[in-house]
Write a protein that binds this DNA or RNA. Structure first.
Lengths: 233, 233
DNA sequence: CGGCTTGCTTGACCTAGGTCAATGCGGCTT
DNA sequence: AAGCCGCATTGACCTAGGTCAAGCAAGCCG
């Protein structure tokens, strides 16, 4: 049984749609689980057996071709929901980018519970609609943006989402943060190669728009200019 | 008041979640409307004022950059749902690719009705999840596939979706069909230029995988080979 | 301390697909 | 039937980003 009362994401995850009694009932179905960096929770093409809420850490959703090309199709942060409820196999794999903690449910148990709780379903619908909007924005990036626009967009997006994931209500975004992924994964997310990612980052560094204190850290020195590059203004 | 009893998509659109009484109530809120090719139903960035079901025809969802680059982020066929329920502005425009007929609702009226009808919301959630899966598959295409893989994938997809939209239960896909878009729009959907689209189509024609009887028609002569190209096998 | 390992950067070169500029062609209009 | 007009195709050339191949720096371990 999960201890929902002390869960750090209880006010932001879909669980926030529930009243205490309902929350307790859902808590009985779920179980907290640690996932270490690189570990895969769901394999692409497998039957969708589990769904989960992210408590801590960052995970990727990814699709691959037979010949090994990979595209990351989504990145989930704390309080986000993972998985494909209501039947079907999962069309993408789910793998931890950092050590993470999730609150996991068997899909069938979750589906049953959701059917009985329209408020939960409503919340899930809202989230799915938001996720769809984000996916579509990313389609624009992949289809039409240049390499430098892509990198700038990614840095802004990570800064925003890590800011939103933090509990502080006064930090809409972060100016210094740790990348939750390596260069290869940035490439897989942006539809670029590792070399292009690296070159574009050094270009931004040389233009004094960002600093790169170490391989995982980014400091945004001139957010305005970065945003201009990102939106192709 | 719409005449739902005779609606050609009543068994496939989200309305199929409703019992006759409910359907009549929803029908009172909606109104059938013709949209002619090229006409825009919703502008990118505008407040989301309407939602709709597609009865006939094909529409595109698209996003543009300030400097005029366009990416089509979705294509909707008969029985599909259009719009961004539950608040927010629409992050993409909706424009008819062919003459079309839609069953349109004001967003607020629809939202109110949906809140009272969990079955309808459930159907909407399922559709949104499917749409999200499709968007993510397309992200793989835009991020990692070559031009010929993209064109092949598009032809298969259109053939499948036009087949599914037809009422015949024995036609899972079509071997001859009319493209619901011109070359430019194919490019905007695939993240390619018009010239590359044209060159790839003639390449497929010369390989005798397809025929192009006129600018809008396609005949798939060797579906197996086309599928192999599409999946990068 | 030196030698590995792992991930990142940099450089030199190449190519898929973009750009620019004709040319073609079917359908309308007069 | 001649002239447009709006696409689509084709060709010649160019470039952003991919590929291939060294280097390089930080952590780690003996």
């Amino acid at each position: 049984m999960s201890d929902c009362d002390t869960c750090v994401v209880r006010n932001r995850a879909i669980c926030s749609a529930l009243v205490p009694d309902e929350l307790a009932a859902l808590g009985k179905l779920g179980r907290k689980q640690m996932v270490s960096r690189g570990q895969t929770l769901v394999w692409e093409g497998d039957e969708s057996l589990v769904v989960a809420n992210v408590i801590q850490g960052v995970l990727k959703l990814s699709v691959s071709t037979q010949d090994g090309r990979e595209q990351i199709v989504g990145v989930v942060f704390p309080s986000d929901f993972i998985g494909r409820p209501f039947g079907k196999e999962s069309p993408y794999g789910v793998t931890a980018l950092t050590d993470a903690e999730v609150c996991i449910f068997t899909r069938t148990a979750f589906d049953g519970f959701a059917k009985e709780h329209p408020d939960l379903q409503h919340k899930l619908l809202q989230r799915t609609l938001d996720e769809l909007d984000r996916a579509r924005q990313w389609m624009m990036l992949l289809g039409r943006k240049t390499a430098s626009e892509r990198i700038a967009t990614l840095l802004i997006e990570i800064s925003d989402r890590l800011g939103a994931a933090g509990c502080s209500p006064i930090a809409p975004f972060l100016e210094k943060f740790e990348l939750p992924m390596d260069r290869q994964q940035m490439g897989d997310l942006l539809g670029l190669t590792i070399e292009t990612v690296s070159r574009q980052l050094t270009k931004l560094k040389e233009a004094e728009i960002i600093e790169l204190p170490d391989r995982r850290s980014v400091v945004i020195k001139d957010r305005r200019r970065l945003e201009n590059i990102a939106t192709a203004a």
